[in-house]
């Protein structure tokens, strides 16, 4: 699992049928210094996160398990808010 900040939302009415009603959000991965690391990607929001939130996300096939229907082509899912994250004695986010 990784850390990220939600930076946007994406709308796709024509999508794979198992994903109806699942919000799609753009997330910017964050490293252990709190800095942006890597490209922005699109994830399914398994929680009611929104732009600006500091979140925890999962990639790979397990991301589909966080969706209402688990047999869906999803490789990234937001699975939790981060209230506090500390690395190298520094608070992140």
């Amino acid at each position: 699992m990784h850390l990220a900040r939600v930076v946007g939302r994406l709308v796709a009415t024509q999508q794979y049928e198992g994903l109806r009603g699942v919000p799609l959000q753009l997330i910017q991965p964050i490293d252990d210094d709190g800095a942006d690391s890597g490209d922005v990607l699109v994830a399914c929001a398994a929680i009611s996160s929104g732009p600006g939130d500091f979140v925890q996300w999962i990639d790979g096939r397990e991301a589909a398990l966080a969706c209402p229907e688990s047999f869906v082509p999803v490789d990234a899912a937001i699975i939790g808010w981060v209230e506090q994250a500390i690395a190298h004695h520094q608070r992140l986010g």
Partner: peptide, 24 residues
């Protein structure tokens, strides 16, 4: 994850288009 659709299940496929974007 690309093999988790009825169309690509069991196929040697690692990329599947699963949505047409309206806006972001």
């Amino acid at each position: 994850s690309a093999r988790q659709t009825t169309i690509t299940e069991g196929r040697p496929c690692d990329a599947v288009i699963m949505a047409v974007v309206d806006s972001w």
